[in-house]
Each structure stands twice: as structure tokens, then as C-alpha cells.
Design a protein around this nucleic acid. Structure first.
Lengths: 185, 185
DNA sequence: CAAACCATGTAAGCTGTTACATGATTTC
DNA sequence: GAAATCATGTAACAGCTTACATGGTTTG
């Protein structure tokens, strides 16, 4: 349930609408969720029930009522309590590892193609993350966050992808040799 | 549904019992699942229904019937089809980022303690992964896997944790300076 | 005039986790 | 004699994703 604390974290700086929350969290690299998971609306109703947030509704002529969400005192203390609680280690979830574990079923050319395609996926991710980083900068300015930690997160995410690229490069190297040089398998 | 292909991958080398599959997959760094998620038993029944695996049951005097699972021709071709299909990029899921995003709520000493505790969690993970790597070596010998790719996966996982440690060290450095120029708890 | 943005929600489903249930055998 | 290993399953739930549903406004 990290989305709960992600929402509280944003609201601790500035009140936001659900829509803005969604944009800020989706752009953020700290909280990786799907774009069209309107989980935010669901979660915020839950936070309301728990008394951690309140809202101020503004009727708009033709648009749906715009609700601006505020964190409560108890929300703030719950957030802080969680932030200082024992942190979990990162989860390393990479289905590519599962593919690689069966890679000796493949012929040399198939393996090469797989590695190449994965490399491209990573390159694509790097572009996406760069775009996100650009947006995050815009968002956190308007949300009045201190940039220190957000920058550290961005750097870490980028470095993971870049290290992945390097790793896959080395794998390609080893494999390339085994094709022209000598059979490793 | 990577567990499906993780299971097929192991069976493509050697028939296994559910219990052995569970051990091999839990020890593996490629497939990270919880220890006591007996998802394997559930998934393998599903694979059976899909005709991707079959089993040979051996009655044992007092223990539950021991079932040895074999991959079928169609299981093998489904596995290979998936392995060469477009790979997904790694998911970067780290709730510590969410904590860090709210870290300016904390006082200097609280932040230092948080960073320190996270560092310890990562060090612990490195030990756990080293132990896993030791076990994996034992497992894949008996499962007749080629070690090349399994070693590459182990190396990558270790390097992620080590880079994380380095990153957190840098964060501590930056933060330590800003507090008092030395006194790190 | 199409695409992107603003704005909020519901319903169904998948993946995986936690906890429960049982009980013999081997190792320290 | 306690702990780990062997051996297989079920039930309930949490967390998140995908797809559906609606419709006005701004920008290129």
C-alpha cells in the first residue's frame, strides 16, 4: 500500500485534486504505477474514511465537481510514522531474468536477437524516464517540494537502467565470442 | 504470469516434484517470489489443464503421493515462443523512494537514522543473495542447467544491491555535510 | 477538427501473499 | 528432543491493472 503514502506525501506539501495527484504520481519515478490505474480515486476515498484527508468540493458549471484534497493532522502524523518505520529492500522484478534462465534453448542467432531487443527496450525506458524527469521538475515546482530527494531518486532510477544496459552489453560480448570463437555451451 | 514460464523453464531441463520446483525457484534470483507462496502447486495444476505438463504419481507409504512433473512437447514450444517474444523492461519497485520523497518532513537525526537503517537492509539482502547464489549452484548442478546465464543473473542482482549501497552512501555524504560536518549519529 | 488535456469514477480480473492444514523423516 | 526437510494442498485477501463510462475545454 505504498500508493497511500505516496498520496499523503504529495498532499503534505500542497492540497491537490485527484487529477493532479494522478499526474504527479504517474510522472514521478518514486511511485511507478500504470497510467490508467485510477487507483488514486479509490485510494483517496479510503483515506477519507480513515480520516487522513478531507476535501473541499467546488461545483463547476458543466464539469464534474472538482474536489481539492487536504491532508489532516492525523494524516500527517500517520505519514511521518510510516516514513521513519523500517524500510523494505527494493524488489528486483525482471521477467527478462526468467527468459535468460531458459536461454540455452535458443540458437545463437535467436539469443542475439533477444539480447538486442532487450537492449532496445532499456534504451526506450531511458528516454521515457528522461521525459518523466523533465515533467517531474515542472510538477514539483508547483507542488513546492524540496528538490534534493526527488533528484536523488531520478538519478538512482537512471543509473539502474544504465547499469542494465552495460550488463546486457557484456552479455552480448561474451556471447558474441562464443559464436565465432569457441562453443561455450 | 512469469511463474508459469519459470516452472516450464526448470522442467525443460529435468522433471521435478512440486517441492523441488518450489525450492529451485525460491532459491533462484531470476524468479523472486515469497517462500511460502504455494503458488507453484496452484500454477502447475493450471499448466496441467493447459496440457503443458504431465505427471507421474508415486504412492508413498505414509507421505502424500509424490508427483513428478514432466514438460510436454506443447509445453516446450510454448516456453520457447515466450522466451523469444518481446521482453519487458525491469520494473523498478522501491518503496524507499516513496519514503525519501517525504523525507523533508524529518529532522536531521531522523533522516540519518532512516538512511542508516536502509543501508542495513541492503547489506542484509546482499548476505541473503550470497546464500541464495550458493544454493543455486547446488540446485542447477542437479537440474543440469547450463550455468552461463544463471551466473549472469546472479551477477546482475548482486550489482543492483551494491549500486544501491553506493547510492545511499552518497546520499548520506551529502546529507551529513549539511548537518554538522561530522556527527553521523 | 483532431488530439490532448481536464475531471471523476466503476467493475472485473490477474498476480501474488499470508495464513491455514497435515504429518512423517532426517539431522543436529 | 527441537529444528529442518520432505511433501502437498486450500482459502481469503491485498494490491494493482485493464477496460469501461462520460463529457467539456484548450491547443495545434
Amino acid at each position: 500500500m505504498t500508493i497511500k503514502y505516496a498520496i499523503l506525501g504529495v498532499l503534505s506539501r500542497n492540497p491537490q485534486t485527484g487529477y493532479d495527484l494522478k499526474r504527479i504520481l504517474f510522472d514521478s519515478q518514486a511511485f511507478c504505477c500504470s497510467d490508467d490505474g485510477n487507483l488514486i480515486y479509490k485510494t483517496i476515498i479510503q483515506l477519507l474514511k480513515e480520516g487522513l484527508v478531507v476535501n473541499e468540493a467546488k461545483k463547476q458549471a458543466d464539469l464534474p465537481t472538482k474536489k481539492t484534497w487536504f491532508i489532516t493532522e492525523s494524516g500527517l502524523s500517520e505519514l511521518k510514522k510510516w516514513v521513519v518505520s523500517t524500510p523494505e529492500p527494493p524488489q528486483i522484478i525482471n521477467s527478462f531474468f526468467v527468459r535468460l534462465a531458459s536461454a540455452d534453448l535458443l540458437e545463437g542467432s535467436e539469443l542475439n536477437e533477444l539480447l538486442e531487443r532487450y537492449e532496445n527496450e532499456i534504451r526506450m525506458q531511458i528516454l521515457i524516464q528522461q521525459e518523466k524527469a523533465r515533467r517531474v521538475n515542472r510538477d514539483i515546482k508547483s507542488a513546492k517540494c524540496s528538490t534534493n530527494f526527488w533528484n536523488a531518486i531520478t538519478e538512482r532510477v537512471m543509473s539502474i537502467y544504465e547499469n542494465e544496459l552495460q550488463w546486457i552489453g557484456e552479455l552480448k560480448g561474451v556471447h558474441g565470442k562464443s559464436i565465432n570463437g569457441g562453443n561455450l555451451i
